[in-house]
Design a protein around this nucleic acid. Structure first.
Lengths: 168, 168
DNA sequence: CAATTTATTCAGGTGCCCTTACTATATATT
DNA sequence: AATATATAGTAAGGGCACCTGAATAAATTG
């Protein structure tokens, strides 16, 4: 098998994994909607990293339009997961603040280990970890090359989220 | 590091990969919308596996509602990627058929290897391949346990798609 | 043949995201 | 100070992927 074919195979398998993962979440886990890393979940994620950000700043960090940010923030306000306060320095600015319920929502979303991971041995877990790290590092590099600010922000976001356990 | 922590770490990394992957597609590849494995793309995928299916059958294989299926099929008709023909045996049935343009769309979507894969050595590709296979196999098992028909259909779909290169 | 099942469509809704205005508020320029 | 311009956010409307509930039309079945 040539390397090119092999790479294509992996690309396919990665895609398969991603697609399956969505279905898996639907079928197996009863994933709570606000805890995905989209829309409202994205906002919570960014606030978990740093609270009291302006909507503008959230939009920038998350790489989405301020209008969408506004929409999701508004929804989170409705669910009492965040509050809005006007910045005292600049009254144009709406600071977005996590409520205790919001903080709880994030906490409870802490790493749930999907059942399928059980099939990997300790050694395999190590291998996978190192491979994933290589891949994501390369992805960050590419994203960074295309849009340096976004790349950095995302990296920060994800590491604060997914490496949390080491900080404890 | 205990095995539990390790598993959590991997779970996090997998999530990170999935999230990054979305962003990566947006930022790096200028992914053609109809070729994703959602909505219209899902329909094309199923038709690539087997042409001339009824909408009902498509809905079942893809695990989505017949109404959604109808919507996406209709869109594909608008784009001239599929046509509809009434079944001669049962005039309630609309058979969905790929047009040559539709077939072309699928062909051209053939495995594009994302640039980040370049960072893996040959050995690492092999490792990753075997790990992913273990994971997806476990996922199929779990999905199957929850909903056996869906699991089987999906497996068929994905293998015909991603293992295509071996058949050639 | 009437009753029921089946395949599809219609209507309407949710969530995520975008673009194009438009409104405050701040800051810079004259 | 007065005006111009930049900035934070809102409003309105649209697209895409789904979903549910209710209609319709064509089987199938008793």
């Amino acid at each position: 098998m040539t390397n090119k074919i092999k790479a294509e195979l992996i690309a396919g398998k990665l895609t398969e994994y991603e697609q399956l993962s969505k279905i898996y979440d639907d079928v197996i886990k009863q994933a709570r909607p606000r805890l995905t890393v989209e829309g409202q979940g994205k906002i919570l994620l960014a606030l978990a990293d740093e609270d009291h950000l302006s909507q503008r700043e959230l939009a920038t960090r998350l790489g989405m339009s301020p209008q969408s940010t506004s929409e999701f923030v508004y929804k989170l306000v409705k669910y009492n997961l965040v509050t809005l306060t006007k910045s005292p320095n600049d009254r144009r600015i709406n600071l977005v603040n996590l409520t205790s319920a919001g903080r709880e929502e994030i906490e409870s979303a802490a790493q749930e280990v999907p059942p399928f991971i059980r099939v990997l041995s300790d050694t395999e877990l190590d291998q996978l970890s190192s491979l994933l790290t290589k891949i994501t590092t390369a992805m960050y590099t590419d994203i960074d090359a295309a849009n340096s600010t976004l790349g950095i922000k995302l990296h920060k976001l994800f590491s604060s989220r997914y490496l949390k356990q080491f900080k404890k």
